[in-house]
Design a protein around this nucleic acid. Structure first.
Length: 287
DNA sequence: GGTGACAGAAAAGTAACTTG
DNA sequence: CAAGTTACTTTTCTGTCACC
């Protein structure tokens, strides 16, 4: 797979240069932002306006106080209501901006975070976002430490405000190295991955890593990564009309043949057929 | 709890093809 | 022309074992 074959939109974002680990925006949206995803984390707070926010294909109402955190494993789409302008703080950052401890805690859950802030929480969050804005507007000494503090406070508040639902109370590997690897995988599962590299990152030998990983997650390393990619691909198949080929590469697969094979083995149906089946179903139900 | 060697197993890629 | 299949090859992983 050569780079020139990958559709432009799937290559990683121009939004963040390699030097900085975060970027802060104040967005004003009056038109649809079509389905997209990032290599980094995205935290946002809606200041005003209303619309529909679809996270991984699931639509949610959004308005003032709506807050969400997306990981690189999520994709989303924003449709402002007709005549409405959405204003929001938008912060993107890489895992370098947060401590291992916080990353491990936040991203052990499977779903994206989203909830509605009350006035008090809203004011708190607004203050942190404002501080990040002012720190990034002009460089001052140790600005990075301030920003990191703001981001970490925002994230802790968010996790307190939207506790995980019962059903997703995942049992997590206790082994700190494996936890670290899982956080890394969540961030990088769409990129080429070698067990050896992830093992090194986790600080274990390849063999022992492979063994411990399987023991703690119940899946082998390869199966785990493949499942993450397939899950992402399946959501895209269902929620978008992107071509299957594009979804294949976007999900981290390098060949269409293998992708089709793996998809069919896992879901008993080829990607294209799944899309047609779901379209038919939606048609008969009248959605 | 952990490493390193190693063989066999499984995954992933290639290429050529069919289908609609 | 994109999607899907298949036989075949190459690469990578996993399980086992000896050892610390």
């Amino acid at each position: 797979m050569k780079n020139q074959d990958i559709p432009e939109r799937l290559l990683n974002d121009q939004h963040m240069d390699s030097l900085s680990s975060f970027r802060m925006y104040q967005h004003t949206l009056d038109r649809t932002i079509d389905t997209h995803w990032h290599q980094f984390y995205e935290l946002a707070l809606v200041l005003s306006g209303t619309g529909i926010h679809s996270i991984n294909g699931a639509p949610l109402r959004m308005g003032r106080g709506h807050v969400f955190l997306l990981t690189p494993a999520d994709f989303h789409r924003i449709d402002p209501d007709p005549g409405q302008t959405l204003r929001l703080y938008n912060l993107i950052f890489t895992e370098r901006m947060i401590s291992d401890k916080l990353a491990g805690h936040l991203f052990e859950r499977s779903n994206a975070y989203h909830c509605e802030y009350g006035q008090e929480e809203f004011t708190e969050a607004e203050r942190e976002f404002e501080r990040i804005l002012s720190e990034s507007a002009e460089w001052r000494e140790h600005g990075d430490i301030i920003v990191q503090g703001c981001i970490e406070r925002l994230l802790v508040d968010l996790s307190r405000s939207c506790p995980p639902s019962e059903k997703e109370e995942a049992v997590l590997p206790v082994h700190p190295s494996i936890r670290k690897a899982l956080v890394y995988l969540q961030h990088h599962f769409r990129s080429p991955l070698l067990l050896e590299d992830v093992a090194r990152l986790a600080g274990l030998s390849a063999n022992y890593f492979s063994e411990s990983f399987a023991k703690q997650t119940g899946l082998t390393f390869q199966a785990y990564v493949r499942d993450m990619r397939l899950q992402f691909a399946k959501s895209l198949v269902s929620a978008t009309d992107l071509p299957i080929t594009e979804i294949c590469y976007a999900s981290g697969f390098n060949t269409l043949a293998y992708f089709e094979r793996a998809f069919k083995t896992r879901y008993r149906v080829s990607p294209g057929n799944l899309r047609r089946l779901e379209a038919d179903l939606a048609g008969t139900v009248g959605v």
